[in-house]
Design a protein around this nucleic acid. Structure first.
Lengths: 237, 237
DNA sequence: GATTATATGATGGTCTGACCAGTTTAGATA
DNA sequence: TATCTAAACTGGTCAGACCATCATATAATC
């Protein structure tokens, strides 16, 4: 036998479905104006409260935008939203390994693509942040430069979706390891390692060596993951 | 000058923030029961309607679950939600290239990992669906087997997050190319190619050749993308 | 006393109607 | 025609009501 729990669909979910279908059908696209809440509540024969429950959900998803006095419009801020959601999911899961593994895949492949594409702009950006890292000793600024280095790396792929997902993963992971990162960066020996790793990544991309670039990123992330694991194990004290 | 548009935070957004913070703080975790809507509206000194707007949004995100008569609980169905959202984002963007590129990265890397890990169960599953594909000529079942083959491939990584994201991408892409796929599968010549490609992927994984597996998946996806592009260009007629 | 049936209260789901603060729009004015 | 102004409309919020469902405490049964 194969039973599924009966999930009575609520009105606001039905409304969301209808709006989604209108998006898939092409009736709604970016910039489309939706009927006003009152109007829609007449059309669908439901209360305005239900309309608003649906709208607030879709707004959180980044599907639509409300302008008081103006109206409600279809937008696409989905990727921006995804960051927050993934971050939350990680907080709920309490296990960062899958996130880090995924990030490793995406960043290493980004490096591969970056080395192939040889986009001068991105490389210049990476170089900029790498130099910041090497001279700047302030921990916060160093961290910031580090993050921007990795952002530039992803940007080199020219794939915004990929960038957004990696960003989402990074934010989620950072949120999760917040303390551990400080300890990691606090150790001068680690800083030296990290410096060298970034240098290797940058060089292989500049030299147009995709395979090397990929390998260097993997080594870098593996190193970080290893160190984090060590810190975690000694956290007991 | 650098100005940002003033976005007055609405009450339901504030409530969402507070709930999120309680998740990050660890006050809420999977299974936690939230105060009832009436109770929370008293605590926060806002109307029940605002609470419900926040709750409906978080429920759509897969963060919480409401049980009529029961109560409201923290859950984690985020990955399930992500599928729908990405699918919508693709419908809004009207450009599948970034999605396909990302899928290529994730699936090719999955193949690499699969060939390394040599998980008997996953390989058996892939084999099963591959054989379905080869003998079954019914277009719908063939498509189904195809999808399951790729699912099994991702499952071999043992990374659920990765699987969910690939699934999200696939659903989104399928939704987008619905007609094109039928045309693609309708051509016997293409079917022959696809059969051979899947055979190669499976073999390289069975033989434990990560590099080959990765390359074979890339070739496969590139082939599909190329054919789709051709179909799109001749769509005018 | 243990078990079952029942009634009570709590919970989410929905609706109505109201008020406010902005934005739009159309009409009045110059 | 251009400008100003008032009315109409829009989203944001609230209070209070009703329903169906669920959980629990109480009462009736064995």
């Amino acid at each position: 036998m194969d039973f599924k729990p009966v999930k009575t669909e609520r009105i606001f979910e039905n409304i969301i479905q209808q709006i989604k279908h209108n998006i898939y059908n092409g009736n709604f696209s970016k910039g489309s104006k939706l009927p006003s809440e009152r109007e829609l509540s007449n059309i669908l024969n439901v209360s305005r409260a239900s309309i608003r429950e649906a709208f607030s959900a879709l707004e959180i998803l980044g599907i639509l935008e409300t302008n008081p006095g103006g109206g409600t419009y279809i937008v696409n801020n989905v990727s921006k939203t995804t960051i927050e959601i993934m971050s939350l999911a990680l907080a709920l899961e309490n296990d960062e390994t899958e996130f880090i593994e995924l990030r490793k895949i995406l960043e290493s492949e980004s490096a591969y693509i970056a080395a192939e594409k040889q986009d001068a702009e991105s490389i210049a950006e990476m170089k900029k942040y790498f130099e910041m890292m090497s001279v700047e000793l302030d921990e916060e600024k160093n961290t910031c430069a580090d993050k921007n280095f990795h952002r530039a790396l992803c940007k080199a792929t020219k794939n915004k979706l990929l960038c957004d997902i990696v960003e989402a993963l990074s934010v989620g992971i950072d949120h999760y390891i917040k303390n551990a990162r400080q300890q990691l960066m606090g150790n001068p020996r680690n800083l030296e390692f990290l410096y060298q790793q970034h240098k290797n990544i940058l060089k292989s991309i500049e030299d147009g060596k995709p395979e090397d670039a990929r390998r260097n990123v993997i080594e870098h992330i593996d190193f970080v993951q290893e160190e984090l694991k060590k810190l975690k194990n000694t956290e007991q004290f």
